[in-house]
Computed example of a mutant assay.
Amino acid sequence: MASRRKRHEEEHENHERWLVSYADFITLLFAFFVVMYAISSLNEGKYRVMSSAIMDAFRTGSVIAVQTTPPTGGANTMIEIPQTKPISKAIKSDHHVEETAKLGQLTQNLAKVMGPLVQSGEVTITQTSQGINIDIRDSALFAVGQAEPNQQSLPLMSNMAKLLADVDNSIKVEGFTDDAPIRTPAFPSNWELSAARAGGVVRLFQESGISPQRMVAVGHGANLPVADNATADGRARNRRVTISVQANNQDAAASEPAAATPTPNEVKP
């Protein structure tokens, strides 16, 4: 009787063994998600280093390597940025190309408007990296010893002003004289004469619609000659007004228009 009862207990089947496997599965699943969370958690220090490195690479265009060591002792991370053209420099380069093209077109238009004076040598138009320089001899604008533009020059100045009004560049008007002294009630010296001539051109431009905020008038007197005052031709070349249309480039804005002999794209007679 006892033997039958023992055999019956041994043959009894346990229907709850699946709980053990289920518990093991849940434990492994929990461990898996813990590991995934640990891997995906953001390391703030590493992120800042990487962000700074990328920004420096775009600014300078150089090759840099950033090595970071996670505080948990994991593998090092190496970030390499290949040498590329910096974005800021690319934008500046595109702007420079557009500005050069715009000023080139303006130079051609000015040459057409002032064609006869360019052919006679009374006007010289030069485009440089800093803008456009328009040198006009005083004989094309003023009577001897006077600062009021003559009637013959008014159509010229009006047509020039129409072209300059279509752009937004700053305009600098400079007056120059020869070294012959002048002493009149209106102009005690060449300083006053050169400044008054520059101011007269600026006033005509303003009356033709050019914003006064874009313009400045400067008188140099007999300083900065472009020829020898010992000859009549040299003195005639030194008595001039220079109109500078300054390029809207950041690099050019920091410097003054060149007073020396200009370079390419000079319109000659």
Rank of each mutant, 00 (worst) to 15 (best):
R5I: 10
K6E: 14
R7Y: 02
E16H: 13
S21Y: 09
S21H: 07
I26G: 03
L28S: 13
N43P: 05
G45T: 12
A53F: 02
D56M: 06
D56K: 11
F58M: 10
F58L: 12
T60L: 11
T68K: 05
I79D: 09
I87G: 01
K89G: 04
K92W: 01
D94N: 11
D94R: 12
H96G: 02
L103G: 02
L106H: 04
Q108D: 13
Q108E: 12
A111M: 04
K112G: 01
V113T: 15
P116R: 09
P116K: 11
S120C: 04
S120N: 13
E122H: 10
V123P: 01
V123M: 05
T124Q: 11
T128L: 00
S129K: 10
N133A: 14
N133S: 14
I136W: 05
I136A: 08
L141W: 06
G145N: 13
A147K: 06
Q152L: 12
N159C: 06
N159P: 00
A161W: 08
V167P: 02
N169S: 15
V173A: 02
T177P: 01
D178K: 02
D178W: 02
R183P: 00
T184I: 05
A186M: 06
F187K: 08
P188M: 01
S194T: 07
A195P: 00
A198R: 02
G199V: 00
G200Q: 02
G209I: 10
G209C: 07
I210V: 11
R214C: 08
V216H: 06
G219F: 03
G221C: 08
P225H: 08
V226Q: 01
D233V: 07
D233M: 04
R240C: 05
V241G: 06
T242D: 05
Q246P: 00
N248K: 10
S255H: 09
S255R: 11
S255K: 13
P257T: 03
N265Y: 10
N265V: 08
K268S: 12
